[in-house]
Design a protein around this nucleic acid. Sequence first.
DNA 1: ACGTTCTTGTGAACCCCTGCACAAAGTCAC
DNA 2: GTGACTTTGTGCAGGGGTTCACAAGAACGT
Lengths: 220, 220
Amino acid sequence: MSAPATTRRDIPDASVARLPGYLRALTALARNGIPSVSSEELATAAGVSSTMLRKDLSHLGSYGVRGVGYDVERLASEITSALGLTQDWPVAIVGMGNLGRALAAYRGFAERGFRVIALLDGDPRVVGDRVAGDVVRPMHDLPDLVVDHGLAIGVIATPSAGAQEACDDLVEAGVRSVLNFAPAVLSVPDGVVVRTVDLSTELQILAFHGQRVAAPEVVV
Amino acid sequence: MSAPATTRRDIPDASVARLPGYLRALTALARNGIPSVSSEELATAAGVSSTMLRKDLSHLGSYGVRGVGYDVERLASEITSALGLTQDWPVAIVGMGNLGRALAAYRGFAERGFRVIALLDGDPRVVGDRVAGDVVRPMHDLPDLVVDHGLAIGVIATPSAGAQEACDDLVEAGVRSVLNFAPAVLSVPDGVVVRTVDLSTELQILAFHGQRVAAPEVVV
DNA sequence: ACGTTCTTGTGAACCCCTGCACAAAGTCAC
DNA sequence: GTGACTTTGTGCAGGGGTTCACAAGAACGT
């Protein structure tokens, strides 16, 4: 056996994906001044079963009290720590089209521990524009952003054609996490994590489920 | 046993979620005039393993030729049919904030078989505005949209607080599929399918993976 | 015509995840 | 202090999804 390392290494991916939901529910409870919550209540608020919630939380440790429930503040703090949100994460948004500008103006990021420190675009005609109060910067600013501001997460909001190039620029500058909104498969070296969110894909999945219940005769 | 119904009922959810990716890759191949493709090539283009691709396609039927590969046009057509995209799906976007306006201006939907037929908002001060060439309509227009235009999919781009109400309006009007961008858990009756895409959740998952490899010392 | 080569389709093993059932542990009432 | 009650934490079984290994089938060269 090697070093024990940190204690929270082996959380299943499926659990990790649900933790943000629990954190959101806990934050809402805390805002309403509720000090304690049972697994049943919290599970309902997060849209999962209570068994699954308890199993997920058990991966973090034993922070509940049997017969009572969970301390809201404490549990929120533990999940925050497990997700690595004890400090803000600097984020850069690449691509100032419609979606990029909407993301730049979105205020929800700051509330969840993310700080948009730069807006970039590969098109020289867009560089220098003002978007949501910030000046759009050129792609070659990326290395400095990583070194000087600890930039760690890149959001790709470019058209599909420019996504791989934007991704390469991010990776080369040292960014290790990428959130991709372009409908494209990005290839990255080992150690870089990419999550792709594609609006059309989501709609197509809904279409599949929709056709199963919809009446077959739809007039065009 | 009841009626045999359609033949494509039992496709695993995990497979359905990957079909749009295959379709996207096939469309790109067709645009380049490539008539045939092997499972290995297509899998690489879609970012999955060739075994998984073949297993997924086997749920649709046997449309490949051993020793040769798949006919690009034919396979694209079969997937299009399986997903229920042989005709356009009318979509309505609810909530004309930053994100809603960006979605309204996005042209990618039309290319993938979706037609935005209405933009709506619950705020009377926004109703009547022009967004991307369309006039924003009030929520009580929903029932007519369902009856007259076959509206089937609703996209919720409202703030978190108004999401459940917007969802209730959609469901009451007869919409059976909802794509939710608000960071909220929506409760719907049986038969209604909801998919939630939350940007902050995606970033938080990235943060978790990022902290595992990042150097612990990050200067604030 | 036949063997070689290539690629698909699929049975089977494996692994992860979810749900069930229950023991462990704490609180409250008296 | 004791018993009843509540709720967590978890071993175990069941199911679904992914990967492995290989048989089935089609084209091509000789």
